[in-house]
Computed example of a mutant assay.
Amino acid sequence: MNLKHQADMAALPTECPPETAKSEDIEVAYRFIKSDLVTEEDFLSHKEENKKYPPYLACQALAVSFFVTEEHARKVAENNQYLGDKKLVKGRITSECGKHRTKRGHINLWLCEDVDMKKVFLGE
């Protein structure tokens, strides 16, 4: 399995993705998107979007964020001005997407190189 940012991950001082990350299906996941229509751009990492992040979060900045429940996602959005104007969509993640780690209701997914995340997430 070749992950999308393999070269960047190798340059990090700690293992990325973490050893606890696994490739398994997640039947229900939630993601914030920019508009009413889901696009490929809705599945970019912080690094790909050139967003700022502290150095200690470099590994997470290579992952795409999802949430386990709608309730948790909305709760996080209440306290995050950046997410306030985004739309929440429901989809799925398959084992072929990459490696993921779930922590406190949040999913970090390190994508595989050739995955069409929009297609997989929407079940197309």
Rank of each mutant, 00 (worst) to 15 (best):
E124A: 05
I33R: 01
C97N: 04
E15C: 08
M117F: 09
E27Q: 11
V38G: 01
T94P: 00
T94M: 07
A61T: 04
Y56I: 00
S35R: 02
Y53I: 08
I33L: 01
E15S: 11
Y82F: 15
F121E: 07
F32N: 02
C16Y: 06
K99H: 08
S23Q: 03
S45K: 05
G84E: 01
K52A: 11
P17I: 11
A63S: 15
H100Q: 12
V38N: 01
Y30N: 02
V38Q: 01
K51A: 09
H5C: 03
P55H: 06
E113D: 06
A63T: 01
I26K: 07
D42G: 02
H100A: 07
H100K: 08
T14N: 14
A61N: 11
A63F: 11
R104Y: 12
P18R: 05
M1Y: 09
Y53R: 08
G105P: 10
H5V: 07
A58R: 12
K51I: 03
P18I: 10
V64I: 12
K52M: 09
H46K: 13
I107K: 05
E124N: 14
N2R: 15
I33N: 01
T102Y: 04
T102Q: 14
E124V: 05
Q81C: 06
Y53C: 09
Y53K: 10
S35F: 03
V28F: 01
D36N: 13
E71W: 03
R101Y: 15
K87Q: 14
A10Q: 15
S45W: 02
Q6I: 13
L57C: 12
V115P: 02
W110T: 11
K86C: 09
L12C: 10
G123W: 02
L12T: 02
L3D: 03
E49F: 00
L83I: 04
D36Q: 08
S35P: 01
T69I: 08
V76N: 05
V89T: 15
D25E: 03
L37N: 10
S35W: 02
D85R: 02
E78R: 13
N2E: 10
N50S: 13
M9D: 10
N2M: 12
L88A: 09
T14M: 13
M117K: 03
H72A: 08
R31Q: 03
V68R: 08
Y56G: 06
I26Q: 05
H72S: 08
E48I: 00
N79V: 10
H72E: 09
K119R: 15
T102S: 14
D114T: 14
A10N: 11
L3I: 14
H100S: 12
A11S: 14
L88R: 06
K86H: 13
P54T: 06
D85T: 03
D36A: 11
G123Q: 02
H72C: 05
T94D: 02
P55D: 11
D42I: 10
K51Y: 14
I93S: 04
K87M: 05
H100P: 00
Y56E: 15
C16N: 10
V76W: 09
H5D: 08
E48M: 09
L44R: 14
E19A: 14
K90Y: 04
K52P: 12
M9Q: 15
M1Q: 06
T102N: 11
S23H: 03
T69K: 06
E71Q: 13
M1R: 05
P17V: 14
E48S: 10
K4S: 04
R31E: 04
R74N: 15
H72Q: 07
E78A: 09
T14E: 15
W110I: 11
D85W: 00
E48Q: 15
